[in-house]
Write a protein that binds this DNA or RNA. Structure first.
Lengths: 210, 210
DNA sequence: TTGTTAAATTAACGACGTTCAGTTATTTGA
DNA sequence: TCAAATAACTGAACGTCGTTAATTTAACAA
């Protein structure tokens, strides 16, 4: 093994090697199953080596999280090809839900697990970059709908509208991820729940006709 | 210390002693910070003694959870004094949110943390008991609104309606609990978010006038 | 009095995240 | 050419965790 010099590119490469190994583990086995020793074994390093690249275990999870935020925004950016702003909003919601439900462990880590508050400063992710910031994507679409004059006249706060849409969609997805196997509740089909939530959102936020 | 006989009442008393100590700890410090040894120290027992009453740590958390489900249902049952079904639904939603936001750690354990699927069989809680089952409370109110003919005519599945209302409210609350300190998003005041979500729900679910 | 038994404790196990002391093998500069 | 310096990496170890095993304690039954 090479004990001496390491270019920045090589260090970055090892970083992503660690992140990928950790992701693969916790995607299949859940967050708790990720141990530093197991991550290390996957990439044929000692557990200690991880600490040369990440301050602690949570830093590894945060790094996974960050690449997943990027993945979410990337998976959503195609919506901007859709011309009708309202239709764009609907497809954004469906895309968000699809991401959440097909990557439940990622989604759980991103939006359902408790983090130490992340400082935007030490994130590589760029806030308000329409290719990297999914919340900004949502806000942009909300703003387009607003400019089209489609929202009810009393709704003028783009953040409030965006956060309401987000909360509604997140509510459906997170309940599904967390409680779908709970037999206490007689769960209706998830796609019906998503469909109705979208309908309710549109009827509640948009002007009367339609 | 008394090492010999123990009536059922005494055993139950010790059970709740453990639960209460554990709850007090994890409410202030979060779930992960609660250790069996710390719970035991609170009640002047050894850590191993807890295992005489609970199979493992998760069983303790599940027991806390169960008493909290009961607490939620208890805190909501006053709504049935309200005559107007739609108003009852609104107050139910506000009561739910108030519970969630004033007991965030309880709420997190109840609806945001991953459990091994609970079998209703080994729960002391009675399903479909209007004093113990908050979901049943919601469904009853939904049914009352339905019987009053206030829902849009195409909405006929009480579970679907209830789960949509729940998901929307849960979405607002869980995002607040988990992400309020995240500076990535310019969060609007929580009461404004709750208010708009209620308005959107009513406009989306109820018949046109009002 | 003496077993018997339930309640409780101490000791210990294996695994975890993490730290430390050391070992490599390459580069440097004399 | 060859020691000194240094970056990459590792094995051993620390403290703590959830949990189990072995043991002690004290009340009852005979």
């Amino acid at each position: 093994m090479p004990p001496k010099p390491k270019t920045d590119a090589e260090r970055q490469q090892l970083r992503t090697l660690i992140i990928d190994a950790a992701r693969e583990l916790f995607v299949t086995k859940g967050v708790e199953a990720v141990t530093m020793r197991e991550i290390a074994k996957r990439i044929d390093y000692s557990a200690t080596s991880i600490y040369l690249h990440f301050s602690d275990k949570e830093a590894v999870l945060r790094a996974i999280c960050e690449t997943d935020f990027l993945a979410l925004a990337t998976s959503l950016k195609d919506i901007f090809q859709i011309e009708n702003p309202v239709e764009r909003l609907l497809v954004l919601g469906r895309g968000y839900a699809e991401f959440a439900l097909s990557h439940p462990n990622h989604y759980r880590l991103m939006f359902m697990a408790q983090h130490t508050p992340r400082h935007p400063k030490d994130l590589a992710l760029q806030q308000n970059n329409p290719e990297q910031d999914a919340y900004y994507q949502l806000k942009m679409v909300v703003n387009d709908v607003f400019l089209a004059g489609a929202f009810r006249p009393e709704l003028t706060d783009a953040d409030l509208i965006a956060q309401t849409i987000w909360a509604a969609t997140h509510g459906v997805c997170s309940l599904e991820i967390n409680m779908a196997q709970d037999t206490w509740v007689n769960w209706v089909d998830i796609s019906a729940r998503l469909q109705l939530m979208q309908t309710v959102l549109m009827r509640g936020l948009l002007k009367e006709p339609n």
